[in-house]
Design a protein around this nucleic acid. Sequence first.
DNA 1: TTGTACCGTA
Length: 700
Amino acid sequence: MPLKNTTTLLLHMAPYTTLPLPSLQCGTLLQSLTNSKSFSQAQQLHAHAITCGTLLQNTYLYTKLSACYAACGHMPQAQLIFDQILLKNSFLWNSMIRGYACNGFPLKSLVMYREMLNFGQKPDNFTYPFVLKACGDLLIRGIGRKVHALVLVGGFESNIHVVNSLLSMYSKFGDLAIVRLLFDKMSVRDLTSWNTVISGYVKNGEPEDAFLVFDHMRRAGGIGDGTTLLALLSACGDLMDLKMGKAIHGYAVRNVGKVCNEFLMNSLIDMYCNCDSISDARKLFEELKLRDAVSWNSLISGYEKCGDAFKVLELFSQMFVGGAIPDEVTVISVLRACNQISASRLGSSVHSFIVKRGHKVNTAVGTALVSMYANCGSLLCAHRTFDEILEKNLASWTVMVTGFGIHGRGREAIAMFYEMLGKNITPDEGIFISVLSACSHSGLVGEGKEIFYSMARDYNVEPGPTHYSCLVDLLGRAGYLDEAHAVIDNMKLKPNADVWTALLSACRLHRNVKLAEISAQKLFEMNPNGMSGYVCLSNIYAAERRWKDVERVRALVKKRRLRKTPSYSFVELNKTVHQFFVGDTSHQQSDDIYAKSKHLNEQLKKAGYKPDTSSVLYDVEEEIKEKMLWDHSERLALAFALINTGPGTTIRITKNLRVCGDCHTVIKMISKLTSREIIMRDISRFHHFRDGLCSCGGYW
DNA sequence: TTGTACCGTA
């Protein structure tokens, strides 16, 4: 009878028999439980050995028991028994060091190792792998190198397990040159050696080298296993190399075949997502028999990355039915999706879900929540959540600064930024972008300039193209067009398309046709296929009623076969997000919406509204232009919200492009007419409309 | 009285 079955049988018998199992029998059983990591059965056997008196004074059994608890990851129990053993052998020490190292307590593992040395026990070829693992996990180079030296002194440098552990440790440190040196010197390599080096290259951002090592391995006659493929799939994702990904998929089917484990399947799904092939990912997902949280998370984050927020929310609800439990990773993807479509009610119900489920709002989740609230228009909730994050990292501060910025609260954004510096957090390029654009949305020219020039001077962060375009935007919006132009001319870097785009839109705001033409020229040279520049230039000409020039730009667009991004707006009602395109008639309440628009137009005109048709790019009669303005997606969304919500309810609208000038005026007036607070998010910022005024103060 | 490793998915 195989040992495993004997074990099971004996264990089942143990509670019913008064016959004590002999010590040797207990030991064999414990060994088998150690291998299978069966904690509860170990507890049963422990109890049995106590009742029967077998355990009494039995160092052999004590040692086995401690090792078994350690292998199961129950370190307090293991430690308790360990402390009672006077005659500690190397097996016992190694078991404890392993237990701590492999169950998330690397520091304790090293403390154990130190105690072992003090105790006079010599480390052996089993000790070093765990100690090296602990050093690697803790990223402590100094101690790692010392242990390496001891390995050499002890003559373990030819032990394959020890060397494999060294490879792993140095790749965790990022010391790939040492990894390579050790690997090349190895006279015998096993699959683990290859796998360690391959995944080492992937983890350190050298996917190409990982493939080279894989080739080397194949030429040496090696066949990859699940672990090899896992690393290579990750490399395919990093390179966005779908062709290679499919090849690896084929290799997996041929060589790993039916052994195809969940890890590998999940990793394949993730690879297809990273290679922008969501349909392949979906296909695999549908084929999966057992879907765990990682399977769901992979697909969900795939949809989130490609911007399909509605699919994310759909999958999130299906996940519950599918029996998988959402975790922090799920929640972060879902919050990002809410963020994309401004689904604040949905987002806050995700927040309550987290709290109800007893999940901790840790740094990552907290940061995602802050970002969601800020991007969905609830700056207050964002701030409150931010305050609740116990350990704020740079990302947390950045989303909060961005939040204040897009809501036009520039001074608070700056204050937040300096508060962060006061906490000795080192700023990076990202947070400078946040704080600079916050200045530009609030017209804080002096403050913004000072921060820009302090970047390199005080914080050793060289301004990149994005920082320059923030500066140009800041100066340009505020009307300092010539100074903005001079900034571009004096840039240390080569100006990119974004910089010229910033100047061009400033020219539109301040109706400077001449500089606009210069900027547009530069922009089209650099990025002839970007649509926004053409739209902006057309608008500038249209505002001056220079229809021939409008026509010329239109012809250029046609020649280059470009298409304007369709404009659309979202509005959330009862946790459902409604989407409207320009001139959309597909909504079931469409007739009511247009009737409401017509009514609003009449009311506004009575209140003195004069349509500004300059954003209409067609030389048609004024009446038609006016009608075209009322087709704008943000107005359809607004009319829809006005029909379907009670008086006094705040309305939140999101638009994928910049809000047009006339819509801005109209929404201001509607906020007064209907006594509603209207919060609108466009591509660059928030507009809080209240009582006929907007928070943006003209900066948008 | 007896055996312990190294490399993996979002």
